[in-house]
Design a protein around this nucleic acid. Structure first.
Lengths: 135, 135
DNA sequence: GATATTAAAGACTCTTAATATCTGCGATAC
DNA sequence: GTATCGCAGATATTAAGAGTCTTTAATATC
């Protein structure tokens, strides 16, 4: 029971893109090197983020990825949803509906998702930025 | 990203054992039939619960499993911990310590675990019991 | 318009974990 | 002693995650 590595890479990439001055584009090459990944693998993850509307891709020369201007407040949940898909933590395979155990599990999952929805990437980006100025 | 089926089976088994009058033992045979599982598979799950001290096993003729008398208040988290092991939802594989993203994820996980720790199986058992009397 | 650059998509491999079964061993009641 | 039952280990089987490679499509620059 663990979030995939892809989610980890996605979150880090998103924060990195947020730190770009003027929201300029960054190529997969640079993003992949930063996280010690192969560009082809990371691009699969970036495509998911693009389809989810969290980032914008521009193909061709001088292309790359940048944060979507239409989504200033991107939450952890947004990214997780993009990479993990619409998964649920627990499904009772025995009872078809109204399983009391499933209800408890789904309630806990719901609360966690609400917390992750309230946590914004921009706050992480700002914190990283201030740490960089310190060091 | 999902809890294993084993956790589902374990939770249902625990509630079933709690509903036994006088805390009497039940064999794997019966527990397996109830959930449409093979006895050998379920027994592996039950062994985990036994090692975790949540239930007590008595081998030999007329043997079986029963709720541990020393643990009257068993939580969802207790069962999950027994079946899933000591897993964590998210580990940053890039930064070695103090990753801001990891911190947020771990905080959310921690809160979910606290909620699952406060939810007791006995409450589910009581609810099931009262529903059975109704129907 | 030709060319270099870059993202997108699909097929494919590799590894790992979950799921599940089977067999033999050891403990217990009778 | 024997039948019953849980325990442990070995062994498939399946599914998902992780990652690579190749081809295709889109874009900028000249």
């Amino acid at each position: 029971m663990r979030y995939s590595n892809a989610t980890n890479y996605a979150l880090h990439t998103m924060v990195h893109l947020m730190l770009q001055p003027g929201g300029s584009s960054v190529g997969v090459q640079e993003l992949a090197e930063m996280q010690h990944l192969s560009p082809t693998y990371l691009s699969k993850i970036l495509t998911k983020l693009t389809k989810a509307g969290l980032i914008v891709s521009t193909p061709g020369a001088k292309g790359g990825y940048k944060i979507s201007r239409t989504k200033h407040e991107i939450s952890f949940l947004d990214v997780i949803h993009a990479t993990e898909g619409d998964t649920s933590l627990f499904d009772c395979s025995i009872h078809h509906e109204g399983c009391l155990i499933e209800n408890v599990m789904k309630q806990a999952e719901e609360n966690m998702k609400k917390e992750l929805e309230s946590r914004l990437l921009i706050d992480i980006a700002k914190e990283v930025e201030s740490k960089q100025k310190e060091g």
